[in-house]
Amino acid sequence: MFRQLRTALRAGIVTEPAAAREIERIGERLASEIARLFGRSLAIRQVDAGSCNGCELEIGGLTAPHYDVERFGVHFVASPRHADCLLVTGPVTRNMAEALRRTWEATPDPKFVIAVGDCGRDGGVFRGSYAVLGGVAEVVPVDAVIPGCPPSPAALLAGLLDAIGRQRR
């Protein structure tokens, strides 16, 4: 036990340095935009419309300690009933199209939709397949797109900021 403690004390902090200034800067602007538009926080419902889960990994990264997006007022919720924004990934498979449409219907107004990833934008590599509709915009009206395969958490934050910046009160 003491050996372990000694090792731990000698090793010091070996984790990566804190998030780049870039994230902090975008985050603070995001927080102020959210405060301006929504008062307190932005509730996001993430919908996987047939994604390969690459985008989900990055979105999940946003909520992890390194980025910790909740401190900027972004909150992922468990039901579209609680959401202001839908964050949709994937090329929209045939099986998920109706569910996505219902999710959009179930989200209270005012709401906006962000399509995430190249698949969400236009179907990406799956474009033209018989199994997909190709892009979120085929099913529900899309307000903003965050491209990338997958988009990094920093890109997601920047895209979120961009999407919110476009919203008018």
Binding site: E98, L100, R102, A106, D109
Partner: peptide, 14 residues
């Protein structure tokens, strides 16, 4: 307050 009637949320099930 605007209200919109819609069916109970059922996780998008058809």
């Amino acid at each position: 307050h605007r209200t919109r009637d819609y069916e109970t949320w059922g996780c998008g099930r058809i």
